[in-house]
Nucleic acid binder design. Structure first.
Lengths: 338, 338
DNA sequence: ACTTCATATGTAAACGTTTACATTATACTT
DNA sequence: AAGTATAATGTAAACGTTTACATATGAAGT
């Protein structure tokens, strides 16, 4: 039914080897033969079986990417940039939604390995360090994105979360806010931990005492952002400003503030990690820490593909970790009225 | 290096056939043997080669999905729901970003075919009808999502765009708006065409004359939404209200309105196709037509997998097309002041 | 003990490519 | 025209599974 390389060979009156050579653009095929073959391909409507090719070549020309939460705008952009970049290099992408869930992550790692992807980009939950380390040891190409895994030596592309968070909180302090709350995500993700660290550093540098009741830890998702913000705003020592540490929690926080009928920045100041189109059209526009999200993804993909395509046995040098800078975009959600 | 089924067989002291049977949970393997095999698998840290399996079985347990624009929130949700659903049935997903570009779409269709995915979910640009029809004729399982392709008989899961648009515009009219502009996307996508149709029907039913200068056609992307809205608002016969036909153009429109310093709904009313979290936290909250996006994706995936797994030769019956209803969510962006 | 039958396991071909190696055709010397 | 080097093509094994078919094992019936 389905036609294969043999059919093409027969039709073109050559061997399968020659057909294969033509299809793979190998040098050393007479122009005349090449044309015959291509004509046969055309006539038969032949399309190569990439599965068979992958089996023989031990190469799938595909990479896998496991993201934290595909619904998040952050990861959409990551998905797009990884895909664009992979594409540019002739790879296609298998997108997996880890959902911030270690078991799902592990499951996907296995699926990707089993499917013999040429490499994996992983936004780790941090929980499967043993498996990931084994993966790397067994020469699977892995690049971590956005976060690290404790105890695992792996190339990575990150953002400087500590400095980013520091800038955000420092800005609040400079604006005159003193009582500053933080709505953060999992502390076992390096992102969560580092953003908290930046927050703590900033208040310490300003001589503000740490107040545990102003520190709320959730799971990086919208609902949790909403719930924790409500908590902060309902408790007796309500903060004057809030720092939310990712885009989804920020949305949640803004919903909570809206629902409680508070106004920004008069009742409450807010600065969010991650920029977005809607941050600009809100009233007032929201001050944010902007990450170079697209670049994050494209650098990770490029690094991964470089690793895949570098012939030389890895010299087992220390892993290459790129850390990108963030940018504070000041808008009006942090304009404390005096 | 990499261990395979032979190594496992040797270690367990059985044949490869038996190992395969254990791994695939075939009945008729003695419990004792099964345990031996599993022990060997464990010891050797064996992981099956899905590529080889796919080749032999002519089944990859994967589906491809080509979306219009992965950056759009609409398609993120689609991606997630398709992936969730595919997963539930034991399939994994290859996500491709067609980018509303017919050539990219064609390219991806070929890649997916070549990679022998078991089925394809496609948000078509409408331009590759010949290739898609061939695909279907050659028994590739395809389900169209969100839009149809003229002249192609294919199962599909859609939304009732005409009625949705009608409801949106009717609502504007009911609120007292008469001069209503529309910022629409490609008319050669059925979504674009139908939403325009609903708009036209609504104004006709209300006895309002069609005014071509109020009808702006773009490409469903943010920039185009912004540009066209600016045009509408700058021209001499400025509309009193605008209907934007997808989420990305809506963002663009809102940015334009904001930049021009106009206020909603006093200077301009607006109703958008597609709901979103930020529609709720904007000031004022935006009236929208909500699509059942998650359901759209999960139904498409389910339909596709049903098709894949139905044994019986397709009886070539008429394609099954599901059309889901939309919902008008009235908020404050359409409250015309009297 | 000898069939008979069911159950468990093994053997080897097949899936559709690529590619090392062998062979043949062509071009170039003399 | 023969010999040689080079270029073009062909042959067949290999990739790692699954599975039809063959065979071995064991239990049950006589």
């Amino acid at each position: 039914m389905k036609i294969n390389i043999k059919d093409v060979a027969r039709k073109a009156g050559v061997s399968t080897a020659t057909v294969s050579r033509v299809l793979s653009d190998f040098p050393g095929v007479r122009e005349k033969t090449k044309i015959q073959v291509l004509k046969a391909v055309e006539k038969l409507n032949y399309e190569i079986n990439a599965v068979a090719r992958s089996l023989r070549q031990k190469k799938t020309n595909s990479i896998g990417i496991i993201v934290g939460n595909v619904l998040s705008q952050f990861y959409s952009v990551i998905a797009k940039s990884v895909e664009d970049t992979a594409n540019k290099f002739g790879y296609h992408t298998i997108l997996c939604n880890g959902d911030e869930n270690p078991e799902k992550e592990l499951e996907y790692l296995k699926v990707l390995k089993s499917n013999r992807v040429d490499g994996i980009i992983l936004t780790p939950t941090g929980k499967n360090s043993e498996y990931v380390q084994n993966l790397i040891n067994s020469r699977t190409k892995v690049v971590l994105l956005d976060r690290l895994i404790e105890g695992v030596d792996c190339d990575a592309v990150l953002v400087d979360n500590t400095i980013g968070a520091y800038k955000a909180v420092k800005h609040l302090i400079d604006q005159g806010y003193r009582k500053i709350g933080i709505v953060d995500g999992y502390l076992d993700r390096t992102t969560g931990a580092e953003r908290l660290k930046g927050y703590l550093q900033a208040i310490e540098d300003a001589g503000i005492a740490k107040d545990d009741s102003l520190i709320k830890i959730g799971n990086f998702k919208k609902e949790s952002g909403k719930k924790l913000t409500k908590e902060l705003l309902e408790q007796s020592n309500r903060p004057e400003a809030i720092f939310t540490t990712n885009i989804d929690m920020s949305i949640g926080a803004l919903i909570a503030i809206k629902e409680m009928g508070l106004t920004i920045p008069d009742d409450i100041g807010i600065v969010c990690f991650d920029d977005s189109d809607w941050a600009l059209i809100l009233e007032p526009p929201i001050t944010v820490i902007r990450q170079p999200v697209y670049q994050l993804g494209s650098m990770a993909a490029e690094l991964l593909i470089k690793k895949i395509e570098s012939k030389r046995k890895k010299v087992k040098k220390t892993p290459s970790i790129a850390t990108l800078e963030t940018e504070l975009i000041i808008r009006e959600s942090t304009k404390k009225k005096i």
